[in-house]
């Protein structure tokens, strides 16, 4: 087996800025307030992922999941430690891709595909499939700014899933979109998984993680709290919570509790 993702002692610090103008800064300095505050979004995180593994990344809001995904995607670079990946990466960060609101759906598909490393010919070849999957119909030639949040998310997912990538990152992909579309996405991600691509799946929905993944990572305030078996990981995350109600359980599989 070959390593697909290597994360070694990675830390990422963010600065919270209180005072941005010179006036605010001098007032704050005169009063003896702090000018800025930092916090560690990721604190010495290390793990290795083999090609073809399917990882569920879990944790509470603000635990550093999206930051970790951005580091793996290459949007951000770590302050210390190193992140290494093998092959082409595609995916979605925090629902909805980087679309330009004034551009039409058609133009955005081409732009987005190009950013993800697809050539013009490759995009043309897959264009019909993408459009069909996104189910945006006649709105394809209107600006995506006019799309509903569901259509927006569908189009983003459709482009990302059609990239022939070696690593697929999915961040809360199922938070928007109706039930049939969610089911379609889940099915598609299972196909991705079966094709031997590395899958990195962020979700709060325990049941869908259980279905989709063969390993779970849990982040707690920027630290890697758990790394291992799916069931144990879900238990670890819920260890201090009361039992789920039947209603929550039904929704959990599709990620409706986000």
């Amino acid at each position: 087996m070959t390593e697909s993702i290597v994360v070694e002692n990675v830390s990422k610090q963010f600065t919270l800025r209180y005072h941005r103008t010179i006036k605010q800064m001098s007032v704050a300095a005169a009063r003896g307030h702090k000018l800025s505050e930092t916090f560690l979004a990721l604190d010495d995180v290390s793990f290795r992922v083999e090609q073809g593994e399917s990882i569920g990344l879990m944790g509470l809001n603000g635990s550093g999941k999206s930051t970790l995904l951005k580091l793996i995607n290459g949007i951000m670079t770590p302050d210390s430690g190193k992140v290494l990946t093998r092959g082409r990466i595609a995916g979605l960060i925090a629902t909805g891709a980087g679309f330009h609101r004034q551009l039409t759906g058609r133009e955005n598909i081409f732009l987005n595909a190009a950013v993800l490393g697809m050539s013009e010919a490759e995009t043309r070849r897959k264009f019909d499939d993408i459009v069909e999957f996104a189910e945006v119909g006649k709105r394809l030639d209107s600006p995506v700014g006019q799309y509903s949040s569901g259509e927006f998310a569908r189009l983003g997912f459709a482009v990302a899933i059609h990239v022939d990538s070696d690593i697929f990152l999915a961040d809360e992909v199922l938070a928007v979109g109706d039930k049939p579309f969610k089911q379609k996405c889940m099915q598609r991600m299972q196909e991705v998984r079966k094709s031997g691509r590395t899958l990195f799946y962020v979700s709060h929905a325990a049941a869908s993680v259980q279905k989709m993944c063969d390993r779970v990572l849990v982040l707690e305030k920027g630290k890697l709290g758990f790394d291992g078996d799916v069931k144990a990981g879900i238990r670890y995350l819920h260890y201090d919570e009361p039992g789920e109600t039947a209603e929550e359980h039904a929704d959990a599989e599709l990620g409706a509790d986000v």
Binding site: T2, V6, Q51, G74
Partner: peptide, 19 residues
């Protein structure tokens, strides 16, 4: 566990933000 194909990736292990 699902039956997974063995995908061989020829690319080297590099920083994803390699610029």
């Amino acid at each position: 566990m699902a039956e997974t194909a063995n995908r061989v990736v020829e690319a080297p292990l590099v920083p994803p933000s390699g610029n």
